[in-house]
Simulated scan of single mutants.
Amino acid sequence: MTPTAPILDVRRIYLEPAVEGHARGREILARFPDAERIPVQSHWRIPDLREGDPEEWLPRKREVLVLGVKKGLQMRPNGRSADFIAASSSNGCAMACAYCYVARRKGHANPITVFVNIDEIGASTARHAQGLGPKREPNQVDPRDWVYDLGENGDLSVDALISDNVRDLVALFRGLHNAKGSFATKWVNPGLLDYDPQGRTRVRMSLMPHGMAKLLDVRTSPVSERIAFIGELHRAGYEVHLNFSPVVLHEGWEAEWTALFEELDDALPAPVKRQLASEVIMLTHNAGLHEVNLAWHPKAETVLWRPDIQEEKQSEVGATNLRYRTGWKGRWLARFKALLAERMPYCRVRYAF
């Protein structure tokens, strides 16, 4: 059997001038002493990352790391997966999911940028939570706590391979009695198990049927490994929810999802089931990403690009996206929820879109 290539093999680090003035920056550089260091004025403006053929994108995700200082520390209201989107400790991702439409301002490879001023990031989150006081009314996000999404633009399980930023965030929420941290992941990182979250961090394990994940979830942990890891995360003290995302409609989708629900029902320990909730997110696509995928992963577009069942719709930020057609989308979503309720009635749907 050919050994699996590591998710990260950092050989080149782009770093802003202030990085080495932060303890976390010095720690990260010490972890990768043999990596080439290239000074840049801004973690956003790196011309090298915008050049090259699509064949170079995946190696760049594995081999390139960007270090910067986070300047904007605002908390953005959300109300869907979380109450607020926290100031991020990173952006970019080592994975290459074909449906991901996160803005790729660094270039389409979009490797991980880690922000080294984690003390400021954590302090801004703590101040915000403390200023809110107790959560007075339950909502679909959480009945008791304010929930902060910590990984909107990346995957913190992989970020944790680079630095102690994620460990520090888990420790922060351990001490906040009115707030939880939350992040979705497609990567199995056993290192998370010794962070001692004490129920104050929610991990949303992202899942889809095995065959679809093999086609679309490029450079992620296999779905079977993610499922097996759910019980371990819960025993380690995390609240664990499921993120069924994206739901990609194609011929046979109902049977595939039913099989996944049956596998989950058989695999999940009883304590996980008692606290389980989920979010369901139907596929959103766009023409720009379609063109990008045609250049490096055209097979993905056979299921992602379906103009026969999709229509254009303006997003909240003014972008033009493709979503499943109004009316039909509601019916398909209702069918999905019915299949889930039939096999996993204990798994409430916290949020569906």
Score class of each variant (00 low, 15 high):
residue 334 A to L: 01
residue 78 N to A: 07
residue 206 S to P: 03
residue 252 G to Y: 14
residue 269 P to C: 07
residue 268 L to A: 02
residue 243 N to I: 03
residue 149 D to S: 07
residue 314 Q to G: 00
residue 79 G to Y: 11
residue 59 P to E: 14
residue 68 G to Q: 07
residue 219 R to H: 14
residue 321 N to A: 05
residue 123 A to N: 07
residue 12 R to S: 03
residue 307 P to K: 06
residue 17 P to Q: 11
residue 18 A to V: 02
residue 170 V to H: 02
residue 229 F to R: 00
residue 343 R to W: 08
residue 193 L to Y: 04
residue 219 R to W: 12
residue 284 T to L: 02
residue 160 A to P: 03
residue 104 R to S: 07
residue 131 G to T: 14
residue 287 A to V: 15
residue 305 W to S: 10
residue 182 S to V: 02
residue 326 T to I: 10
residue 256 E to F: 04
residue 93 C to I: 13
residue 142 D to T: 09
residue 123 A to W: 10
residue 29 L to K: 08
residue 174 R to M: 08
residue 27 E to L: 06
residue 148 Y to R: 07
residue 132 L to K: 15
residue 55 E to M: 11
residue 38 I to D: 06
residue 121 I to D: 03
residue 65 L to Q: 05
residue 348 R to M: 09
residue 286 N to K: 11
residue 147 V to F: 13
residue 47 P to H: 04
residue 185 T to C: 09
residue 97 C to I: 15
residue 261 F to V: 02
residue 110 N to T: 06
residue 206 S to D: 05
residue 285 H to P: 01
residue 122 G to L: 06
residue 185 T to M: 10
residue 16 E to V: 05
residue 159 D to S: 03
residue 327 G to T: 02
residue 326 T to P: 01
residue 74 Q to W: 15
residue 338 A to H: 11
residue 253 W to A: 07
residue 205 M to Q: 07
residue 80 R to S: 05
residue 133 G to L: 12
residue 29 L to V: 01
residue 186 K to G: 12
residue 280 V to C: 01
residue 56 E to R: 08
residue 8 L to W: 10
residue 158 V to K: 01
residue 59 P to N: 08
residue 310 Q to H: 11
residue 348 R to C: 04
residue 276 L to W: 00
residue 97 C to D: 09
residue 339 L to G: 02
residue 79 G to M: 09
residue 169 L to Y: 04
residue 111 P to H: 00
residue 81 S to F: 11
residue 338 A to R: 13
residue 68 G to H: 07
residue 199 G to R: 05
residue 132 L to G: 01
residue 343 R to A: 04
residue 213 A to I: 07
residue 184 A to Y: 00
residue 27 E to F: 03
residue 245 S to Q: 07
residue 161 L to H: 08
